[in-house]
Amino acid sequence: DHWEIRVGDITIHLKDVDEEIIRWVEEALRNGDDLEEIKRWVEEVLR
Rank of each mutant, 00 (worst) to 15 (best):
E26G: 03
L14C: 06
R30G: 08
N31W: 09
E19K: 13
E44H: 06
T11K: 08
E4G: 04
K15Q: 10
E4M: 02
D9K: 05
L14G: 07
N31G: 06
E43N: 02
T11V: 10
I5V: 10
I10G: 04
R23K: 09
W41F: 12
N31T: 08
V42W: 12
G32S: 14
G32L: 10
R40D: 05
I38K: 01
D1K: 04
A28C: 02
T11L: 10
H2N: 09
L14P: 04
I12C: 03
E4S: 01
L14A: 06
D18V: 15
D16R: 11
D9P: 13
I10A: 12
N31S: 13
W24Y: 12
R6T: 13
I10Q: 09
E27V: 09
G32H: 14
G8Y: 00
E4D: 04
K15C: 09
V45I: 13
R30S: 10
W41H: 15
E26H: 03
V42T: 01
E37N: 12
K39G: 05
I38D: 00
D18H: 11
W3S: 07
D33T: 15
R6I: 14
E19L: 11
D34Y: 15
E43D: 12
G8V: 07
E20R: 14
K15F: 09
R6C: 05
D34M: 15
D34T: 15
D1A: 05
I5W: 01
I21D: 01
L29F: 08
D33Y: 11
N31Y: 07
R47Y: 00
V42Q: 01
D34V: 13
L29N: 01
W24N: 03
D33L: 15
H2I: 11
L14R: 05
E27Q: 09
V45Q: 15
W24M: 13
E20H: 14
T11E: 08
K15P: 09
K15H: 14
D34N: 14
D16V: 13
I5M: 05
L29Q: 01
D1C: 10
V17G: 09
H13R: 13
R47E: 08
E26Q: 05
E36H: 11
G8H: 07
R30N: 08
E36A: 10
H13K: 08
E43M: 02
K39Q: 10
E44S: 03
H2S: 08
E44N: 08
D1Q: 04
D16W: 13
A28Y: 10
I38M: 03
V42C: 07
D34Q: 14
E20C: 00
E19G: 13
N31I: 05
W3Q: 07
L14H: 03
I12M: 06
E44M: 04
H2L: 05
H2D: 11
D34W: 15
E4N: 02
W41Y: 15
D16M: 10
R40F: 05
N31L: 11
G8I: 06
L14M: 09
E37Q: 14
H13P: 07
G32A: 10
V7S: 04
G8A: 06
R47L: 03
T11N: 05
I21G: 02
G8N: 06
R47C: 12
N31H: 14
R30C: 02
V17S: 08
I5F: 03
A28R: 12
R6G: 07
R47H: 10
D1E: 11
E43H: 01
R23Q: 07
R6W: 01
L29W: 06
H2G: 10
E36M: 12
H13Y: 06
D34F: 14
I21T: 11
G8K: 04
E37A: 15
E43C: 07
I22D: 00
V25H: 00
E27L: 05
I12F: 04
D34A: 12
A28H: 13
W24K: 10
L46I: 10
V42N: 00
E44C: 04
I22A: 05
E36K: 07
A28S: 08
E43T: 02
V17H: 07
L14T: 04
V25I: 09
I10E: 05
R6A: 06
I12T: 02
G8C: 03
R23Y: 06
V25Q: 00
R30K: 15
E27G: 06
R23T: 05
R30M: 13
D16H: 15
D33C: 14
I12N: 01
R40I: 06
I21E: 01
I12D: 02
I38N: 00
L35G: 05
L14N: 01
E19D: 13
H2T: 04
L14I: 09
V42P: 00
K15S: 07
D18S: 15
V25D: 00
R47W: 00
L29Y: 06
E36L: 12
E26P: 00
E19Q: 12
D33E: 13
E19S: 13
W41Q: 09
R30V: 09
D34S: 10
E26C: 03
D9S: 11
E20T: 14
E27Y: 01
E27F: 01
R6V: 13
D34E: 12
E26M: 11
I10L: 09
D9A: 09
E36V: 07
E19T: 13
A28W: 08
E43I: 01
R6E: 10
I38Y: 01
E27A: 15
D9M: 12
D1R: 01
D18G: 14
A28E: 01
W41R: 15
K15A: 10
V42F: 12
V7I: 14
E37T: 14
R40W: 02
D16K: 08
R23E: 04
R47I: 12
D33P: 11
D1N: 13
K39C: 08
R47D: 07
E19C: 07
E4I: 07
D9F: 02
K15R: 14
E36D: 11
I38R: 00
E36N: 08
E26Y: 04
G8L: 09
E44W: 00
R6K: 14
N31V: 11
V45C: 03
K39A: 04
H2P: 06
H13C: 11
I10N: 06
V45E: 13
N31E: 04
R23V: 05
D9V: 10
E4W: 03
I22G: 06
D33I: 15
L35I: 14
D9T: 06
L29M: 10
E26S: 04
L35K: 05
I10W: 07
E20P: 09
E36T: 11
W24E: 04
I10S: 06
E20L: 14
W24F: 10
I10R: 08
E36G: 06
R30Q: 08
E44Q: 11
W3A: 08
L29K: 02
I5L: 12
I22H: 06
D16C: 03
D34K: 12
H2K: 06
I38Q: 00
